[in-house]
Amino acid sequence: MGGPMRQRLITLRQTIAVGQRFATGPVMGRFLMALREKTILAIRCPSCGRLQSPPREICAPCRVRNTEWVEVGPGGEMRMLEYVYYASPDPLSGETRETPYGAVGILLDGCRDEEVFWHLLNPADLDRVRMGIVIGDRVTRGSRLRPVWADARTGSISDIRYFELDEPPAPA
């Protein structure tokens, strides 16, 4: 039954899916519940003093539990823009978001250095924002951004719909 090598080959398209019930734990939970009240929380390492938001249970480099909650933002300066042309399927739904989209690293008010907070940028602002850059003494300020809150907030990262430009429009 050898036969010629030409043959039809079969592929099967299937979305594997398992329902999940994710736990926030006390640290992530406190952060998410604060978003419901339009507040962004960070957590401070007792050893090196750095802030993390979203908060983690411990500071990885210092290997100690974070101990102090701090309110930051909600506005801040854009430090980084990831201009994304390709979207991976969302593992929570199997769906793919619209492209291009902007993922932004924001230095929220009260934070410094690398303590950036990541979220989405208002698609309308994609080509209107500038990144803040610090090279030695040369400082270029990034665009001011502010969160746009969802009307119905549930204690989720999506309680912030996205960040939008918080500056007067540049002269034409």
Partner: peptide
Amino acid sequence: MELTPDLRDCFTVPGKLALPYTYFAGR
């Protein structure tokens, strides 16, 4: 603000693990 681990800060969120695949049966 002090860190006070509290069950009142804990909740659960319904979600899903869903990934689209194309499986190949091979020759």
